[in-house]
Design a protein around this nucleic acid. Structure first.
Length: 474
RNA sequence: GCCGGCGUAGCUCAGUGGUAGAGCACAUCACUCAUAAAGAUGUGGUCCCAGGUUCGAUCCCUGGCGCCGGCACCA
């Protein structure tokens, strides 16, 4: 049995359909998981949906839908990513699962037992015009931007608070002792700066009368947990905490994948919560950038530049999308996804590159060799592994493509297609070597483009390429 | 406003104290094992602007302009 690794994405909040940006996150995680398994490791890969809270409650109401029915529908939509993107997560957790609810309550109790939860009056700014509460970031010059003529009301209610302020130094110690705790390093700096600025306790409950769609606070039926306090606990409840501790201990700590908008929640808030509950911190957190819609603009309905991952897959295939997101995106920075860019990358990398090179090698193999090549062990450069371990997926892909281009050079220089007329054995030897190289490439490609990799290996085994891998798009 | 980052070929990005590179795109040539693909050659840059340090700066320093991110209860 290989080394065990537990990885998880964030849980998308089910108030919108799956977005291409989330596809990036889960594809990164899936590549990482497949890579670890390829080298013999055992992986627990967690994914799921975050289903509590105000917004969901309201959205379901808007739709005139039962809240549970609403979240069921959305959970299914997200779980559909598995097939579309060819994902290998083995656990789909929902924060409405009974086991998770129990775990969240137990987590609360542990924090409480540790003296980190207390009741306090919570001052809420309320706009009578909107009839909703406002946070400071909602306000412009201290007023509601939609009702600047009205005075905000200050309403008070009792809430439970989490003693976040207690964990500032401990978090800084965590960061300083683990310089690769957050990757890339500049994101670690960002969160460190935030923590250095001082932490304030925050509210972790809501009055049930105002917002019933949440997990009960243990011992206080008037309150439910604030949604993300419960949601974060999924990372431990997914692997058996608190009732199956042997299982939990065999997997924890976790390697997390999250977007830059989640930096603080995952690398500060959640870590403080773990400390409070007496659980070891996460192992590592990879922070990716956003997928933008061209010209550095966010995708939005009004700009008409929204890319639906399901549509891309239907049109171009799951591997093509995985290719684009892993090679054409810089893993930690924002990147543009436009159909024009996608097609360009598809033609250059998949049709002209991988597809054509595979085709020329396999056709020669079929014509010149008496049977399939015995490929032996794949040759995987150390650099390849190093790149993936650091989630530098684009670099790993570039490395693979440089190997492809090496093959083209070899064919160009040795001309086995001419040599075969004068020296069949010499030509066969060259082609055999090329097939072995192609095999190594397919092995390296496997985590990124599993279907294509499998097709190449089948073709090598059969000594026949049944169909072209990728045809040029017009 | 405060803190941080960035500004290099049409696009995406590397890079170095000694007057710049890759991939893609584009053009030409040429070839045929291959998917009009691969290959060779080439077009293309005042390395944001201005000052300073230096024998010499795209790289160091200062200022300016432009863009982006963060500045907590949206998850």
């Amino acid at each position: 049995m290989g080394k065990k690794t537990y990885i998880t994405t964030t849980l998308p909040y089910v108030n919108a359909d799956p977005h291409i940006g989330f596809a990036l996150e889960i594809i990164q995680a899936d590549i990482y998981a497949r890579f670890l398994r390829e080298r013999g490791g055992e992986v627990f890969f967690n994914f799921g949906t975050d289903e509590h809270g105000q917004k969901i409650y309201e959205k379901a109401k808007e739709n005139g839908e039962d809240t549970q029915a609403y979240v069921d529908r959305y959970a299914a939509k997200f779980d559909a990513l598995k097939k579309a993107l060819n994902l290998t997560y083995n656990n789909f957790i929902r924060t409405t699962d009974p086991h998770h609810i129990m775990a969240a309550q137990e987590f609360w109790k542990r924090c409480n037992a540790n003296g980190d939860i207390y009741k306090k009056n919570y001052k809420v700014k309320y706009c009578v015009g909107c009839e909703t509460e406002k946070t400071d970031s909602d306000l412009v010059n201290g007023c509601c931007p939609d009702h600047s003529n009205r005075q905000l009301e200050i309403r008070e209610e009792e809430n439970y608070f989490f003693r976040y302020s207690k964990y500032g130094q401990k978090l800084l110690d965590l960061y300083n002792n683990n310089p690769e705790f957050v990757v890339p390093s500049w994101r670690l700096n960002e969160v460190r700066k935030f923590v250095e600025g001082g932490l304030e306790d925050f509210s972790i409950s809501r009055l049930r009368t105002k917002m019933p769609w949440g997990i009960d606070v243990p011992g206080d039926p008037d309150h439910v947990m604030y949604v993300w306090f419960d949601a974060l606990v999924n990372y431990v409840s997914a692997v058996g905490w608190p009732d199956r501790m042997e299982e939990f201990d065999s997997w924890w700590p976790v390697v997390q994948f999250a977007g830059k908008d989640n930096l603080r929640h995952q690398s500060a808030t959640w870590q403080a919560m773990l400390m409070s509950a007496g659980i070891a911190p996460s192992k590592k957190i990879f922070i990716h950038g956003w997928v933008l819609g061209g010209g550095g603009q966010k995708m939005s309905k009004s700009l008409g530049n929204v890319i639906n991952p399901f549509e891309v897959v239907e049109k171009y295939g799951g591997d093509a999308l995985r290719y684009f997101l892993s090679r054409e995106m810089t893993p930690f920075e924002d990147g543009d996804f436009t159909e024009a860019r996608f097609k360009e990358a598809f033609n250059a990398g998949l049709a002209n590159g991988l597809g054509n090179t595979s085709s020329r090698v396999l056709k020669m193999a079929e014509s010149y060799l008496p049977g399939p090549v015995t490929v032996g062990e794949a040759e995987i450069p150390a650099l390849y592994s190093k790149y993936i371990e650091g989630l530098e997926l684009n670099k790993a892909m570039d490395l693979i493509w440089s190997k492809l281009s090496e093959m083209d050079s070899i064919i160009q220089e040795t001309q086995p297609f001419k040599l075969v007329k004068t020296d069949k054995d010499a030509a066969a030897k060259i082609v055999t070597d090329l097939v072995k190289r192609l095999f190594s490439i397919s092995k390296m490609l496997a985590p990124f483009m599993p279907e294509t990799s499998a097709k190449i290996e089948e073709a090598i085994k059969a000594n026949n390429l049944a169909a072209p891998l990728f045809m040029r798009l017009e």
